[in-house]
Design a protein around this nucleic acid. Structure first.
Lengths: 70, 70
DNA sequence: ATAGAATGTCAAGTATATTTTACTTACTGC
DNA sequence: GCAGTAAGTAAAATATACTTGACATTCTAT
């Protein structure tokens, strides 16, 4: 609830590495639905999860979670 | 629970702007205890709250929440 | 040494992030 | 067509972020 804006940057970074949502979810230790919800902008992850995603995808916080996108 | 590491960068950025924990908390719309707990590393804010803190303090996500510090 | 403000901490409650199960819809390739 | 994989969505349960109120500690200044 309370949409935040879809996170296309994660989707793109995932594509760069040819990773599926499921694979990324497992790599960072959350459920596939959680990863999907984050990409859909349906909620609001914790900073710890964001850090884990950045680490796996080799991007910085600013790159993946910097500004809101529509 | 599950300590993360104290966030001295927020404390420093706050000092730069001569802001109190209370003032920062009000500016970002959370309780003073929440701001204190974040600086103490007692938990794990959401990315939305991190963004709000960065905006008020004029720093980037990487600057304030980039790496863990002891 | 006392007063006041800023900070640290705790317990009990509320809001919300995250899980699990499950169903649906594309998009493949056979 | 059919089978399998990737993705989107939802409801109910659980974990945890966050609030409120209260009290203790530290720091600064008078």
């Amino acid at each position: 609830m309370i949409p935040i804006g879809r996170n296309l940057k994660i989707k793109a970074a995932r594509a760069e590495r040819d990773m599926t949502q499921k694979a990324l979810a497992e790599a960072v230790g959350v459920s596939r639905q959680t990863m999907n919800a984050i990409e859909q902008g349906d909620y609001n992850p914790t900073i710890r999860l964001c850090r884990a995603i950045c680490k796996v995808l080799g991007k910085s916080l600013d790159e993946l979670f910097g500004e809101e996108d529509e």
